[in-house]
Design a protein around this nucleic acid. Sequence first.
DNA 1: ACTTTGACGGAAA
DNA 2: ATTTCCGCCAAAG
Length: 108
Amino acid sequence: MGLMCAHRLNHEQIYSLVRAIPKGCVATYGQIAALAGFPRHARQVGYALAALNDDSVPWHRVINSQGVISERARPGAVEWQRLLLEDEGVVFDHRGRVPLKKYQWQTD
DNA sequence: ACTTTGACGGAAA
DNA sequence: ATTTCCGCCAAAG
């Protein structure tokens, strides 16, 4: 039933947290890992999202710690992600970065 | 039981 | 500011 503290970070834990990111906000890979209880596992969050095959996960709300949309193999993916974010009100700065101060999901 | 495949982040130079 | 180094590992075939 409830959530137990797992001894490893699986993809579903990551997806659950990403589903909780409010519309119009962003979270960083490292932030999701830390919220899951695995502070230095940002890369795994990227791996999980790369393997994603689930429409219910708002993967576009996850960006890197610089406020930049991370590069990936598939051409056009970065531009697509930006459009999805802009559609929900996220405004990028002139360098193509999301101001984290303004849009990062605050939890605590 | 391997081997391959990937959307990171912090520190140091 | 930019580059390099290194720790990080689940899932699918």
